[in-house]
Simulated scan of single mutants.
Amino acid sequence: MLVEILVKKVTTGKPKPADDRLGFGINFTDHMFVMDYNTEAGWHNPRIEPYGPLSLDPSTMVFHYGQAIFEGIKAYRRVDGRIGIFRPRDYIARMNRSADRLCIPPVDETLVLKALKELIRLEQDWVPRSKETSLYIRPFIIATDPFLGVRPSFTYKFMIILSPVGAYYPEGFNAVKIMVTDQYVRAVRGGLGHVKTPGNYAASLKAAEEAKKQKYTQVLWLDGVELKYIEEVGTMNIFFVIDGEVVTPPLEGSILGGMTRDSVLTVTREWGLRVSERRLSIDEVVAAADAGRLQEIFGTGTAAVISPVNELKYKDKIIVPGDGQVGPLSHKLYDYITGLQYGTQPDKYGWVEYID
């Protein structure tokens, strides 16, 4: 069924920041997409309207019980001038998987993709043009019932906001230092670790702040039961290269299945590398480093794409992969995947959707 998306434009747009002053998640475009849900009408009233604050009752359920989900997608100004969105259908499908776990009604994925494209088309002048810049896309859903009982909400608001961004980490594509925590846990199987919900990120803040005090960029989480097996970094999935084997933890219910993670698995397998999704203990990583067999560590995520790691701190042990520099596979993957995104590599996988 064809659904019309109503559009209300701003009269005067905001000034656009220069590409070299973007930061990450600081600036927001002139418009946003909004859609409402109630049990009588389902998802309805899809619209694009001026970006602005929300008016919500103090008892709104999302404030008290955290029933919310979100996604992070990116659009790129390609070398031919076109705007491409990287794997939007996969991100929208993942959002519906998160919705199912949080008892949120699923959205029509075709409608959301249409809305996303219409919003970006309207805001196309906000898509930056410089290297390592992009338009970050944040779809999210919040529970909106004004009610203090614990149950799924009967009403929801779905929104998409846009933010022109530079590199996620201040280091850019340079190696970062990661601290392994064995004091805090992020998630356990059967919990919410495999979905993109705000509570997972709130749970990570304490450990992340402690890592920053020790001059580490992020935290690497271990499993929540034995504090033994590697899971993921705060904002990234994690990969290790040990004796030529590319290893990443399996998706067993406590790790978010990242789209960049999936892209790396697809590409490295096609390149003929030995690739494993298996449980990997921190002790195995330490032993590999001690024996000189730990060649590379890198993170994968929408925000940073590929983030090389040149140091892990575990208890009093400092683990340095390879020669402590950006590894060859990290560099090759970064160049290839960003090449797909910016259009310097052919999109043989059909991962890019265009704004025409």
Rank of each mutant, 00 (worst) to 15 (best):
W43V: 08
G81W: 13
R82A: 14
S59E: 13
E71T: 06
L56I: 02
Y76I: 01
V79I: 15
G42Q: 08
G81R: 08
M61E: 13
F70M: 13
I83H: 06
F63C: 00
G42F: 12
D80S: 12
P46L: 03
I85P: 06
D57F: 04
I69P: 04
G66H: 08
M61N: 02
G42V: 11
S55G: 11
G66C: 09
L54T: 09
N45Q: 14
E71F: 06
R47T: 10
T60M: 05
M61H: 08
Q67M: 07
K74A: 05
H44T: 03
I69Q: 11
R47S: 13
G42H: 11
Y65R: 10
V62L: 04
R47Y: 07
G72H: 04
I83E: 08
P46C: 03
T60C: 15
G52C: 02
H64L: 05
I48L: 10
V79P: 03
I85F: 03
R77N: 15
I48W: 05
R77V: 02
G81Y: 14
K74C: 02
R47N: 06
Y76S: 04
G66S: 12
M61F: 02
G66Y: 05
G84E: 09
E49H: 10
P53F: 01
P50L: 13
R77S: 14
G66F: 03
F86E: 10
I85N: 04
L54K: 14
E49G: 09
E71Q: 07
R82L: 09
Y51I: 02
R82W: 01
P50S: 13
G84W: 04
V79L: 13
Y51R: 08
Y76V: 04
S55D: 14
R78N: 06
N45M: 00
G84I: 08
G72P: 07
G81T: 14
I69E: 14
K74S: 01
I83Q: 06
S59Q: 14
D57T: 12
W43M: 07
Y76D: 03
R77K: 15
I48D: 11
W43Q: 07
E49D: 11
S55N: 15
Y76G: 00
Y65Q: 11
R77G: 10
G66P: 08
D80K: 10
G66K: 08
P58Y: 07
G72A: 09
R82V: 09
F86H: 12
